[in-house]
Amino acid sequence: MSTSEAIRADAARLLAEGRAKLVIGYRARGPHRAPAFVSDPAGVDVLIYDNLCKQNLAVYLRKPEVRSRGPVAVVAPPAVMRSLVVLAAESQLTEATVLAVGPDAYHGVLDLAGAAALLKEKYADLAPSPELLEALAKLDAMSPQERARFWTDQFAKCTRCYACRAACPLCYCARCIVEKNVPQWISTAAAQHGNFAWQIIRAFHQAGRCTLCGACEAACPQGIPLMLLNLALSEEVAKQFGEKPGYDPAAKPVIGSWKPDDDQGFVR
């Protein structure tokens, strides 16, 4: 049985048994992949899974109109499972039903604990792409002025469409800091100061939480290399605090916690 067929069979069973009222998976739209929302066991035939299915579907679990149609089951590659584990660690989820898929195999229907165990067992060494690592190293080798110029040019493209925020499963604030205007910390203008503040704060709010799923960068209509920011922070989180988010549903938030012996070599 192919992965797609196995997903359909499990989705139909979950819906028929009432364990899920809504299955979120992938469907084909021409040569593209779009999210599918299936609530009828007879409708599972639209579900497919292949290596073109890239969107992080965990993002839908924060939407009230999706939650209200739950319980929800999600087709989840490792990136999606890691997002769900972070959401659980942050008390945004208490339970999850996933149809766990990997690049190599279909792992069946799992709950949150099962997904976390699978991640630790089979997907503990998920690493950023060599291209991304190389791009970050190249940026770090530049002078500060060159880096400033690089980002000024990149952020100049930002239209403030907030697709980066919308596509990220971990951007779930009921009201985003950029939408608070008393006082207005971040200018909403798609101009240099507003774009810099927005992009820096967006990245920093993910510090210690980001699982490097790549949804923000993939969503950016302007092609801004947001993953460079996320990767730099993730590396720092691993180096300084030994944390890799998305594996432990009971993990404490990196920025919401502290240790007396945290490194302070940079403090005078």
């Binding site: 239209t159 697709a163 209509p221």
Partner: peptide, 17 residues
């Protein structure tokens, strides 16, 4: 509209493009 609304993430990518 309800079905469309489920998949839409609520960004401005479409309108700004």
């Amino acid at each position: 509209w309800r079905d469309l609304g489920l998949a839409c993430l609520g960004c401005g990518s479409c309108a700004y493009a």
